[in-house]
Nucleic acid binder design. Structure first.
Lengths: 134, 134
DNA sequence: GAATCTAAAGCCATAATAGCCTCCTGATAG
DNA sequence: CTATCAGGAGGCTATTATGGCTTTAGATTC
């Protein structure tokens, strides 16, 4: 799948978390955003593993941004929560020859590769700070 | 879901169709791209309804581009096959006040709106011609 | 007109995502 | 040390996306 709710919820969470200096727990966040608590918890865990958030257990624990908003870009956010890069095309962009051996799809491979590159670049250049600043 | 395989298949189809002047039928296209015939047929129908493709029934029928590649942008492609705009956020970007009455989500609404606008602009400016030209 | 080809449209099955619940682990307060 | 709080991890269910199949409709050929 290409871009799922996990990406949406991740970005929503980052915007809210950027406004609070203290850790905010997943249950509070899920109530504020009116989204599934358990699903959100998994997403926040992914963001923590990707070093985008810090997580703290125990009383007054929760999640806080680990980096400055201008250091957090949408490509890394989506990549971390989607389990894979937010690829529009399944053919992995990391390899430069066509992964399938279908003649037709191989002939369009350079175009797909180019499109994926454009999308990746756009997402990589779009930071949380770009969203927060007016 | 925000951006699904329907968008992927639509773009793949458009790239292939851009290379053939004669109508190409959905079964041939599905074989060339090694994707589901019935699912692809529905996608092509959506693209035809959106005036991106022309469809012809009967012998030697099939689909052809209805516009020039530079006139086809990724926002309209995705919007037509996803049934809705490829929104990262469910809150409709067309209304400028927050649709939910949740205090927290309303406070971040302007930021979501801004992000959605950036994404829409990027997709609207990205045409099929941009993908095809080297 | 009859036969054939292919889009259009619907229904149903399968697969993936989104969401729910429970238990476990580490941290803090007392 | 004990109780409590909140993250980490996994299984289970509901919803949605994907794909298979069949029927109908329009167009072409003979």
């Amino acid at each position: 799948m290409l871009i799922t709710r996990a990406s949406e919820y991740a970005i929503l969470s980052l915007i809210v978390l950027s406004k609070s200096k203290d850790p905010k727990d997943s249950e509070t966040l899920s109530r504020e955003l009116t989204i599934s608590k358990s699903f959100l918890a998994k997403i926040l865990q992914s963001l923590a593993k990707a070093d985008i958030l810090n997580s703290y257990k125990g009383v007054n624990g929760g999640f806080v941004l680990k980096k400055e908003p201008h250091e957090i870009n949408m490509l890394e956010v989506m990549s971390s929560v989607e389990g894979k890069a937010p690829a529009v095309f399944e053919c992995s962009p990391s390899i430069h020859d066509c992964p399938s051996n279908q003649a037709e799809i191989c002939s369009i491979w350079p175009f797909l590769n180019k499109l994926q590159g454009k999308i990746d670049l756009f997402l990589a250049e779009l930071t949380l700070a770009d969203i927060l600043n007016d």
